[in-house]
Each structure stands twice: as structure tokens, then as C-alpha cells.
């Protein structure tokens, strides 16, 4: 037992230094050298100031912007405290939430008569989902075009340009980055 003490402590300290200090520092060093933008949060600059990150969604509720998915963080899209709703599918609170959101989305988009795309009325896992499905973006085109006084055609075209397909045609799901799309809207003349 006592003969095991020295190996235990030395091995623990040595492996702590290797895996807890040297390893993260090495990865940080290489990452900052090769992928500085990604390693620091993929920040977006517009007009000389940082307006967000490619990867983190933002809250939009103005009619002239595309809206993101509902967020369970407090306040919405709080990137310092991520969380999902963790509400189950038979929870009355969840059904109420979906009903309220569906009503609000339908009211805001009166030209749409079909059912609402599911991602537009369900909260994402992180509360920070930067994307919506192409269906959810197309659903909002008429509203955004009207609020901006732009031809719906041009807005639809912008959405189409912003659809990211599956990686290699296989992995993941088609999606639209809401912040990128809204930034492009603002620069639409």
C-alpha cells in the first residue's frame, strides 16, 4: 500500500501536467496559428464593429427581419447561459407554448395558409441555434418583403442564396443562417 503512494502521486501529477496543461496549451497554440478565426468564435464584423458570431443565433422579432427559432434561454439567445426547454411532448406547458408560437407566427405571416414549419415553433436544444430550415425561411419571405417595401422575388432569391445544403450532399440537414441572411437583407438596396 505505502509502496504504491509514490507511483500514485508522481503519475497523477505527471499526467495532470501532460493532459491538463501541455495538451490544452499545445492545441490552443496550433489552433490560434492555423485557425485563428474559428478558435476565437467565428466573429462577424460589419462596419468596423463586431455584430455577432456565425455560429450563435440572435433574437429577432421585428417584422422586417427573418425570425430565428424559439429559444429557451433567458433572455432569448443568451449565449452566456445555454439551455434547452427540456419540456416533454405530453407536457401541457409545452403544448401551450407551441400553440402560442404557432398563433403568433400565423398572425405575423397572414399570406401563408399552410401549416407552420415545425422548427419555427419548437425551441432548439442549445437555445442558440443559428439556423432555421429553408421551409421556415421561405415561410417568412412575404412578411419581410412587405415590411421592407421590397419585391418578394428579391427576398426569396436572397433566401435561396443563403441555403446551405448537406455537407458532401449527405451529412446534416439543409439550413439557413438567420444572422447572415438578415445582414444581407440590410445591405440589399
Amino acid at each position: 500500500m505505502f509502496s504504491l503512494l509514490r507511483p500514485t502521486i508522481v503519475v497523477f501529477l505527471a499526467l495532470s501536467l501532460v493532459t491538463g496543461v501541455a495538451y490544452p496549451l499545445l492545441v490552443t497554440g496550433v489552433a490560434q496559428l492555423i485557425f485563428p478565426r474559428q478558435a476565437n468564435g467565428s466573429l462577424i464584423e460589419a462596419n468596423g464593429r463586431v455584430v455577432g458570431s456565425d455560429l450563435i443565433g440572435q433574437q429577432f422579432d421585428d417584422a422586417k427581419y427573418f425570425w430565428p427559432r424559439p429559444s429557451a434561454t433567458s433572455p432569448a439567445y443568451n449565449a452566456a447561459a445555454s439551455t434547452g426547454s427540456n419540456l416533454g411532448p405530453t407536457n401541457p406547458a409545452q403544448l401551450d407554448a407551441v400553440r402560442t408560437r404557432t398563433d403568433a407566427v400565423r398572425k405575423a405571416n397572414p399570406t401563408q395558409h399552410g401549416p407552420v414549419p415545425v422548427d419555427l415553433v419548437t425551441a432548439s436544444g442549445s437555445g442558440l441555434d443559428p439556423h432555421i430550415s429553408p421551409a421556415a425561411a421561405l415561410y417568412q419571405v412575404d412578411r419581410v418583403a412587405r415590411a421592407r417595401g421590397v419585391d418578394a422575388h428579391r427576398v426569396r432569391e436572397l433566401v435561396t442564396q443563403h441555403i446551405e445544403g448537406r455537407t458532401f450532399g449527405v451529412l446534416g440537414e439543409p439550413r439557413v443562417n438567420v444572422l447572415r441572411l438578415n445582414l444581407a437583407l440590410d445591405s440589399l438596396k
Binding site: 427559432r69 434547452g84 426547454s85 427540456n86 419540456l87 411532448p89 409545452q94 407551441v98 404557432t102 400565423r106 399552410g114 401549416p115 407552420v116 414549419p117 415545425v118 422548427d119 415553433v121 419548437t122 425551441a123 432548439s124 436544444g125 442549445s126 441555434d129 439556423h131 432555421i132 430550415s133 429553408p134 421551409a135 421556415a136 421561405l138 446534416g172 440537414e173 439543409p174 439550413r175
Partner: peptide, 21 residues
């Protein structure tokens, strides 16, 4: 009146707690 079908523009299904990507 929520659309959960899978088609070319959305994965559909139970998206509560899931990420679009």
C-alpha cells in the same frame, strides 16, 4: 397545424430540443 413532415426544405419530425443543422 404544425408541419412535421420531412421534405426537401425541412427535416420535420419532433424538433423540440434539436438543432436545425
Amino acid at each position: 397545424s404544425v408541419d412535421q413532415t420531412a421534405h426537401v426544405d425541412q427535416p420535420g419530425g419532433n424538433m423540440e430540443g434539436k438543432e436545425t443543422r
